[in-house]
C-alpha cells in the first residue's frame, strides 16, 4: 500500500499544491488509525515548526465524506493577509490532496474542504 513510491508521490503533490497556491510552502497533518493528528510532511523545514517560525498560515480541513481526516496548511515565511480568493483556492487544493490520499489508500469516497484562516 505505502512504499517509497507513495512518499515520493505525496511529496510531489504537496510541492505542487504549494506552487499552485503561490505560497512558500505546504504542510500536511492527518489523523492516524488511533485518531491522533500527526504531522505527515512539509515542503520545507518551516512547515514542521509553523508556530515557532512566525509564518503566516492558512489551514483548511481535509474532509472525506463527512469526516475530517486532517488539515492542509499553506504558509508564507513573511507576514501575509489571506484574501478570500486565496482561502477558497486553498480549500479546493485541499480537495485535490484528499483525492490523492484516497488514491494512495486504495480508493474511497467523496471529499470537501472549506478554508479557515489562522
Amino acid at each position: 500500500m505505502s512504499g517509497p513510491g507513495v512518499e515520493f508521490l505525496l511529496a510531489n503533490v504537496l510541492q505542487g499544491v504549494a506552487d499552485l497556491s503561490g505560497v512558500d510552502g505546504a504542510a500536511l497533518r492527518l489523523l492516524d488509525d488511533s485518531d491522533r493528528l500527526r504531522m505527515i510532511g512539509a515542503t520545507d523545514e518551516d512547515g514542521w515548526v509553523l508556530e515557532r517560525a512566525g509564518c503566516s498560515a492558512l489551514s483548511v480541513p481535509l474532509v472525506e465524506g463527512r469526516e475530517v481526516i486532517g488539515e492542509l496548511t499553506l504558509y508564507t515565511h513573511e507576514r501575509h493577509e489571506w484574501s478570500r480568493s486565496e482561502v477558497e483556492k486553498g480549500a479546493r487544493l485541499g480537495e485535490l490532496v484528499v483525492v490523492a490520499l484516497e488514491a494512495m489508500a486504495g480508493g474511497r469516497t467523496e471529499s470537501s474542504a472549506s478554508g479557515q484562516v489562522r
Binding site: 505505502s2 505525496l10 492516524d32 488509525d33 505527515i40 510532511g41 512539509a42 515542503t43 486504495g106 474511497r108
Partner: peptide
C-alpha cells in the same frame, strides 16, 4: 519536501477502514 513514512502509513491505514473502494 520531507514525508514521515510511518505517520503516512498509519493515516492511510485509517482511511482504508471505512468506505468501499471507488
Amino acid at each position: 519536501t520531507h514525508i514521515d513514512p510511518e505517520a503516512l502509513v498509519a493515516s492511510l491505514r485509517r482511511m482504508q477502514k471505512a468506505a468501499p473502494a471507488t
